[in-house]
Design a protein around this nucleic acid. Structure first.
Length: 305
DNA sequence: TTCATTTGACCTCC
DNA sequence: GGAGGTCAAATGAA
């Protein structure tokens, strides 16, 4: 299995190099897309293998309430489990900078529909924190929530804390749950994996027009081509056991590419629920879906989900 | 009429 | 006891 993994990763790197070399040439868009697709396939397979290495079983999808969201009894069977596992719910943070003139609601639109259920003044914060939950919480038992906090220093900067994974029908329409991953210092194995993926993705990004005004607090630079105001995602977990769980997407000339990668450990629930696919455990979407300008990814900063 | 937002009260955790 | 998070009634918008 290790050998197979190695080969797949190496294959991905090869394709990435090919893609990189083509970026400077006049090769066709199709050719580049084909290579990018190959890269994604390689990593998709690799991550699938990694996910099946056993570590994911620590947390079953059901235990996190991401079983069939349309189950009639979902509201009744899961609650106590959710209650006890709320702390271990996947949590990540995204920072969104609003450009002047941009409607805040639109800028913060991540493709999911949220219902605000509370607002609270936070100690030391100039602005109140808004509490939102998935609109389909009642009807589909979706436990995803988010908190929106405006920055003290920069009123145009919003910190959005997501908790839980969407299990509602939106999850299959809005492909990825998490945009880009920032690794914590003590993450090693997963970091290596991500680095490889990142390297590949970077090669594909460099040829894109730069319109992004990225505000970054990332440990590594984001591809400078992501078409969004800003994004920062940190997957947090108390015991740091969670691997990495993230995705990125970018757009170029109408072609939007969305990556969604996922590693072992506690991220298991997300891998199942993010895309609602019974046959896929790695949240890797078809990389070349075309989204119209009205698509969530085509909106605000182009992505997230 | 339905659905979303607001907001004070209540609950939970540290 | 205090701060953060959630509930739920009241209110508003479509």
């Amino acid at each position: 299995m290790k050998k197979e993994l190695n080969e797949l990763m190496t294959e991905g790197i090869d394709y990435a190099h090919q893609l990189k070399s083509q970026l400077g040439s006049s090769s066709s868009q199709e050719s580049r897309e084909h290579l990018a697709k190959k890269i994604l396939e390689s990593y998709h397979k690799s991550l699938t293998i990694m996910n099946y290495s056993g570590e994911l079983d620590q947390v079953s999808p059901h235990s996190l309430g991401v079983g069939s969201p349309k189950s009639d009894d979902s509201d009744h069977q899961v609650p106590h489990i959710i209650e006890s596992s709320r702390k271990s719910m996947p949590r990540w943070t995204q920072k969104v900078r609003i450009a002047p003139g941009v409607v805040i609601d639109r800028a913060l639109d991540d493709g999911f529909s949220w219902r605000k259920y509370g607002q609270k003044d936070i100690l030391g914060a100039k602005f109140p924190r808004g509490y939102h939950r998935c609109t389909y919480r009642k009807s589909q038992g979706c436990e995803a929530t988010k908190q929106v906090q405006r920055s003290n220093e920069d009123p145009m900067l919003f910190e959005v804390i997501y908790r839980g994974i969407h299990t509602c029908s939106q999850a299959s329409n809005v492909s990825s749950a998490i945009p880009v991953q920032v690794l914590e210092p003590n993450q090693t194995q997963e970091q290596d994996k991500l680095e490889i993926v990142k390297t590949s993705l970077d090669t594909g990004h460099h040829n894109y027009n730069h319109q992004a005004n990225l505000h970054q607090t990332l440990d590594y630079p984001l591809p400078s081509t992501i078409n969004l105001e800003s994004n920062t995602v940190m997957l947090q977990h108390k015991d740091h056991k969670i691997g990495f769980l993230g995705s990125t997407s970018y757009s170029d000339l109408g072609t939007n590419v969305n990556y969604n990668f996922l590693a072992p450990h506690d991220a298991g629930s997300a891998s199942h629920s993010t895309i609602n696919s019974p046959t896929t455990t790695v949240g890797l979407e078809s990389p070349f879906e075309n989204f119209g300008p009205s698509h969530p990814f085509g909106g605000f900063g182009g992505f997230y989900s």
